[in-house]
Design a protein around this nucleic acid. Structure first.
Lengths: 356, 356
DNA sequence: GTATACTCTGAAAACGCTTTCAGAAAACGC
DNA sequence: GCGTTTTCTGAAAGCGTTTTCAGAGTATAC
């Protein structure tokens, strides 16, 4: 027989089904109607031969990769998982593959040509701090579908952005700290250099201060890097420097965890001595003790939306220039509020009904 | 000029550099020496034309995709991020792309042909509970490079596995609970159905019990799903059922978090009333209160090693049939131990030197 | 019953690379 | 100097699909 040990190609299927390869291709893609009987023969042949079309050949011929690329600076932090989850889920729904590329090494070794880009993917999701302006400009000039995550594009380029209401979220947090808990000396821990989320959170922080006539004090600003270790070190240093503060806005939840550790190690009570708030509401935020007051960012939804927008672009449609997702204050205990009433009532009822 | 609006191909470069396309290909891949002067011309032309080789064409011609596929059941939990980090980093180091595919939707819709596999990737990393036996068998028969993560293959197939010392880790935990903290009624929260890590952890749990002549009590086994919500519900139910226990081995750290919540809600003190231990030592484990005693699994290293092994396979070499990574007991406070002495000493010193 | 319009089909031309093959040129051995 | 290697190079043949093009039937309109 023709049982070569090569995997079957479309030609084998065609021969087996006594049709042309064009017809096989057509039933494969459903592009054009095929006579029912022949279509059945083809389907049968594909089954028998265990035919799986070669992606590369398809891509080469059709010029579409059916793949979305995701570029991020590095894979770390509690933030990352929900976001990828959203992206992957949505990509899957629209039947696209997902190619992931982190820049951690590439930056140091720039000659290492990035394989992501206009020929491996139909569209790109670019997380903040991953690509520099010139690279973005090049892709944009090529009219290549790109969507930015948590990063507004350089002025000249109108690349769609998905991001969240950082400023409002931060302001809500700081307002709460000032108005409800009467904090005045609030530390802000900045995120990584040039990180836009951090920029806007700081903006919200400053505006909230200003709105309450609290003068801005540069001594209360430090670097947290959206990372618990860095935040830990920063707070330790502030303590060492004898800087006086009664609250910390940690920049994000990961950093908040580091703040918790530094404060506890130093014997400061949270929230009595120092209130601490984070940002993102990552899964573990509720599990810090005291439970972390933070701002809920719809991380997973950001991922989904990004895929939706890049799909528009890939389909040649218009995409939304800016998608700004609402954030929501999540009050727990690290700000000084009592445990959520619903939970405690439930707790009491639960206890009374179970303790015999 | 010949400034078509199509992106440049190897032919354009060849023309520009006045050489044949074969020569261009050769300097591109460095397969065969090329006269220095010509090579330079080619490189120049590539630069000027901003030439980027089409991956699909390369793949089709060379039959190698330079891509590793990762298949997992779903993207969730704190465990996921470090693992992906390891995989991505190592893939990057050996200059491979990474294609990610989660099965969450595919399972419900099996006709949705999985695009990962023998034609999109040169090798596959398969996380536990992602592919069924028949699919594994097919890939194995094709001699396709596959490495399993946290899952031993069906008997007949000798597919390399990377996993961790679950049984020993669990036993260490239980021994500690019994010997140091004199716990006798230890709950075990199982992971997802058919999850091998869970199986071995239970094995370790049972053996440790047996070694101390503590009878196994089926009432102390419940489902935790490696997930905080599920663990929360399970413990709540046990409390409701009036089951008596003095410790919980949560199956993994995510579940441990859920256990914490259920216990606190019910007013049980950790570790006084109930000791709690987890497994994995995910980043947030140290931030639970009390800090979680757990077992450190080298998650990131598992990812790296998996890529190394699949690389061997892809290179036609032999791979290690079983890679069993050592786990390590991480004693913190949720078992009943005092805060780590090194930390508290440091803390005291720190305090005394900073408090003026 | 013929002209016109559809519907379906196969041949063949891309798609943009890698790789084989054989030849030209240069280097070497004696 | 004249064969014999060795080194480099270009022509051309794939790789396995999709897609265009034109043609063969078949249905529809009159």
């Amino acid at each position: 027989m023709h049982s070569k040990n090569h995997p079957p190609t479309i030609a084998d299927v065609a021969e087996h089904a006594r049709v042309s390869i064009a017809t096989v291709s057509r039933v494969l893609n459903g592009t054009v109607p095929v006579q029912a009987e022949k279509a059945e023969r083809v389907r049968l042949a594909m089954d028998e031969l265990q035919f799986v079309p070669r992606t590369a050949a398809r891509v080469l011929a059709s010029k579409r990769t059916h793949t979305i690329g995701l570029i991020l600076p590095e894979i770390s932090g509690a933030f990352f998982s929900p976001m990828l989850r959203g992206i992957e889920a949505q990509a899957h729904t629209i039947d696209y593959d997902l190619l992931i590329h982190s820049m951690h090494a590439t930056l140091s070794n720039p000659h290492h040509s990035s394989p992501l880009g206009e020929h491996n993917t139909d569209g790109l999701l670019v997380f903040t701090n991953s690509l520099d302006e010139s690279q973005l400009a090049r892709l944009h000039k090529l009219n290549f579908p790109v969507v930015l995550l948590h990063q507004t594009p350089p002025d000249s380029l109108n690349i769609p952005v998905i991001t969240i209401e950082n400023k409002d979220g931060a302001a809500m947090l700081i307002n709460h700290l000032i108005e409800i808990h009467e904090r005045r000396r609030i530390v802000f821990l900045q995120g990584p250099q040039g990180h836009e989320d951090s920029h806007w959170r700081e903006r919200g922080y400053r505006e909230a201060l200003e709105a309450h006539q609290i003068p801005f004090d540069a001594a209360l600003i430090a670097s947290g890097g959206f990372d618990d270790e860095e935040a830990f070190t920063s707070i330790q240093q502030m303590l060492l420097d004898g800087i006086d503060f009664d609250a910390v806005f940690a920049g994000d939840d990961d950093a908040a965890a580091g703040v918790f550790r530094a404060l506890k190690l130093a014997g400061r009570l949270i929230p009595q001595d120092v209130a601490v708030v984070g940002f993102d509401d990552v899964p573990f935020a509720r599990y810090l003790a005291p439970a972390l007051t933070t701002v809920r960012a719809p991380i997973e939804e950001v991922g989904r939306e990004a895929v939706r927008q890049v799909k528009h672009l890939m389909d040649g449609e218009q995409a939304q220039a800016l998608t700004l997702m609402r954030t929501e204050l999540v009050i727990r205990e690290s700000c000084g509020c009592p445990p959520a009433s619903s939970e405690s009532i439930q707790s009491v009822e639960f206890l009374s009904s179970t303790r015999r």
